[in-house]
Design a binder for these strands. Sequence first.
DNA 1: GCTGTGCACTAAAGCGCTTGAGTCAGGTCA
DNA 2: TGACCTGACTCAAGCGCTTTAGTGCACAGC
Lengths: 355, 355
Amino acid sequence: MPAKRSPARRPTMKDIAQRAGVSESAVSFALNDRPGVSEITRDRVRRVAEQLGWRPSTAARQLSGEGTATVGLVLARPADTLGVDSFFLQLISGIQEVLAERHLGLLFQVVEDVDDECAVYRRWWAEHRVDGVLVVDPRTDDARPDLLDELGLPAVVIGGAPDARHPGLSTVWADDAGAMASVVGRLYELGHRRIVHIAGLPGLAHTERRIRTLRAEAERRGLAEVCSVTTDYSDAEGAAVTRRVLEGGVLGGGSPPTALVYDNDVMAVAGVAAATELGFSVPGDVSVVAWEDSALCRMVKPWLSALSRDTVAFGRTAAVELTSLLDGGPARAVGVPVPGLIERDSTGPCGPCGA
Amino acid sequence: MPAKRSPARRPTMKDIAQRAGVSESAVSFALNDRPGVSEITRDRVRRVAEQLGWRPSTAARQLSGEGTATVGLVLARPADTLGVDSFFLQLISGIQEVLAERHLGLLFQVVEDVDDECAVYRRWWAEHRVDGVLVVDPRTDDARPDLLDELGLPAVVIGGAPDARHPGLSTVWADDAGAMASVVGRLYELGHRRIVHIAGLPGLAHTERRIRTLRAEAERRGLAEVCSVTTDYSDAEGAAVTRRVLEGGVLGGGSPPTALVYDNDVMAVAGVAAATELGFSVPGDVSVVAWEDSALCRMVKPWLSALSRDTVAFGRTAAVELTSLLDGGPARAVGVPVPGLIERDSTGPCGPCGA
DNA sequence: GCTGTGCACTAAAGCGCTTGAGTCAGGTCA
DNA sequence: TGACCTGACTCAAGCGCTTTAGTGCACAGC
């Protein structure tokens, strides 16, 4: 027989009942603030429970109809796209702040694509693993809301637009459209007329929203030479697209734009490097704005102007919505503050441009 | 009554039993590959289960003595330190690859410090939430191994040194000492005699190991002007320390070093920026090595020479060890390949230095 | 014919908790 | 005095599984 050190035993309600001299039910009532026991007994039970270091077994609790006290989050991005992006860890740490308070666990999974993600939801649901989920990276044509509806799994969509077709889902959304409009406005003010938007993954709801807004704003202002190019968010594509754009291969007329808006910080940094290599000075020849602020933006020269928002708070808000949903609250759509443009050194007036 | 769409019902073993015309026990035997049913019955049961989309309820399963099919990972780092570091997401995605295969869930939590981390372990244990845990950022004076021993929670320590005092814990470790020795060796070869190591958090086991090794190597080679400075891994401290070091405030004699070794990529990048600002050219005046390779290292000029390892594989290895532990395998200490130095443009021969 | 053996399968207990249906003492009211 | 509450508890069932101890049957050996 292996001399395995016998681990401590977990106390159960039965232990408490015995010690306190009452029935298990009484213990249950006492510990769950249900009527049916006197205050005196309740106190005694609570004390014993504390003293024994008792915590309810989530499994047992769940089996008798309560929830699992766990929410799920799945990230559908290939491992390498995940790398440098600081967004998710920040988001998650915001989420955790709220969940930890309520002793809710976070079940986390990384998968390759949305189909796998759906499979995970099904499995979690069938295995009774989670009470609800947080959905990130909503898409324009997204199978997930329908699925979650079908499964009856409470969910909040992070970064989606409010969606009338799924009244059961909460949404926490940032006003990308507003932010994009303000960026374009500011660039216009600085004299820029030729703008390229190096966007993120096509199909992502916020990517499409930004692209639409850019187009709308351009039309409104009568700018013909404005466009978006989608990428995979990687530094490699950021650099490649930047080269293509600056060599005149994208905008009409064969000449380069005077302002570039990148959908994340990683691409912006890579883009600036690429631009510099091609002999473009930033912001002399071309202005650069990064969507998403982070330490990265202050690690390169020139420091990048960036759209900054409080990602941790974003996560917190999402978690709060989910807990409220779990408490039986109504599904809602709540907005978070519009990202603000922090102007550092990578943006400037359009000099001898527009020629 | 609210017109709530009734969600799909989860099928249970009872449903399968009925449909297949056998008892629940038979179903259990069939589905768990236990003897006691004929192959014919087993097949029939399996087919029915599949057709019904049945998955075992983790709660029920656990309540009857099986595990929870969940492992835990807690990250004890303040939210802001978490930011730019690509290490953890990579590690986690490696871990996931292995866990997903076995349908193990990953319970994830971010906390402030190790005390909180211990509290989480206790809670998880008491609530029966996890079958085992992955421990990261081992420290020189670490309370966690003792605690996990006491709780009898299977665990693998990621990045620790093999630890004879805790025979129950597995360890997955990288040979930092070897890597540091090789870096010092290479720098020595290039003519560098004055080296400063901008280390990570003090108290972290691998930080201390690297510092010790650096000192040992310096002594062995008779280098007097070599030292380590600890930081919090942030770009801010990386830059600040770099300035202090280059202004001669750290090494004896008041003159700057000719080579800098940074414990992560973020600090290395920030450091190069700081050095450039002070008028030092890289690698002309000072060579720079980053410990941990990532896209970041190729986003700045000059491209950074870096110690590279396969972090995703690191995570995979750790997860494999944990699953083997859960299967009743023995605790082991397994090494992963020593990080290799990729020489890019930030390292070069020590020119007119050593004067 | 009887016991023995092996096999395929069923019955039922039990895991730790919640909960609806009792039970029982003490008080109220007619 | 007896019917009737009410508050404080206890009982026991049940959640969905696993598992131990059967049960019933076919076949073998004496």
